[in-house]
Simulated assay, not measured.
Amino acid sequence: MNVPLSLIDFCTIHDGERPGDSIARSVRLAREAERLGYSRIWYAEHHNMSTISSSAPAVLIAHVGAQTERIRLGAGGVMLPNHSPYVVAEQFGMLAEMYPGRIDLGLGRAPGTDQNTLGRALRRDPRAAEHFPDDVAELAAYLSGDSLIPGVQAMPGAGTNVPLYILGSSMFGATLAAKMGLPYSFASHFAPRHLTQATSYYRQNYQPSERYPEPYVIAAVNVTAADTVDEARADFEQVARERVRNMATRGPAGRHISEENLDALVNSPSGQQIISMLQFTAVGDGAEVHRYLGEFTKLAQADELMISLQSPTGEKTDRAMEILAEAWGL
């Protein structure tokens, strides 16, 4: 039996678009994902990235939630060291009151941005990540209504018990999720190196909690699907080139690299390293993608797959989502 499929939506801003265009597309994607039978959609917190508009997941979730009916919505994730656990509890507690039974809260300890933005714009201490385990515990207590600070309750938030998921791309997250008895989501869509080590450790060392007596693994994987294998391969080549363009040169100027210079970047060691981050990518038609994801599910020991649709245009992304849903039998 196939595991559930969910989506992570980066609210991608394509060339020539405004952020509002990407937000409107994310609403359309969520509505279509709901119709097709996907389990949930998560939005990731990123800052100072010219191609991603999901800088405020809670605001985006509120907007998408008002225009959908059933699909679960969540953060994948909120970068907790950037925020007070109390404020996060209030925000997601409010979302849970607005959309009961539909809200998830994935938590990461990375900044989701560069160090300059972190220190000078977000005004966050780079050492805040060291307190991540304590911050998770404090946040969980607010959401359960058992605040660790006498006389302080999150309102809304207390008693909502919004489900928490530990996000990770290394052994740290796997260790913490196992110790705290929480579900674990591995970011193998961009950090493939430690996937099998982390998920194996998590399962073998899981300490059951009252709410989660069994471990639960969500593994993220890229999908470039098209009507033919050749079209999918061409699409992935374009996606890989754009990934190199955007990561090699930050900011809007990166989009204006000449094709000749981009060729050189793609073929350079740094360009190949960027492309290697897409190691776990299903590329092909429906049958090929289904075969790949079945094998990936076993490799990752996954209970659920979090799909990052990697297509060069919004229209191709919509079609890829349809192909995948049909092939997987949603």
Rank of each mutant, 00 (worst) to 15 (best):
L36R: 10
G286W: 10
R255Q: 12
L293N: 08
G314L: 15
L293Q: 15
M180Q: 03
L262W: 14
M321S: 06
V152N: 14
Q272E: 14
A187V: 00
I218G: 03
N48T: 10
V223G: 04
S39N: 13
A174Y: 01
E97A: 07
S147A: 08
G181E: 00
Q67E: 06
M171F: 02
S268Y: 03
P126Y: 02
Q204P: 09
S39Q: 07
L305E: 14
R127K: 11
Y142G: 04
L293G: 15
S39R: 15
L80T: 01
E45D: 14
I323L: 13
D263L: 09
A174F: 00
L182T: 02
S188G: 12
W42F: 13
L60R: 03
I23F: 05
V152T: 13
E34L: 10
V244I: 06
Y201E: 01
S22A: 13
V221P: 01
V266Q: 02
A96I: 02
F92H: 03
G101C: 08
H83V: 03
P183K: 06
S258A: 11
R243K: 11
G329R: 06
M180H: 01
E326D: 12
L122M: 12
L80A: 14
L105E: 07
G76N: 11
A44K: 10
A75F: 06
P111M: 00
N2D: 05
G159F: 08
L278W: 14
A178V: 00
S53L: 10
L330V: 14
V244D: 08
Y99E: 05
A302V: 06
D263K: 12
A121P: 12
Q310T: 07
N222Y: 04
D134L: 08
C11T: 05
R127G: 02
W42R: 06
V59C: 04
G37C: 05
G76S: 07
S258Q: 10
T297R: 12
P19K: 04
R72I: 02
P126T: 01
L7T: 11
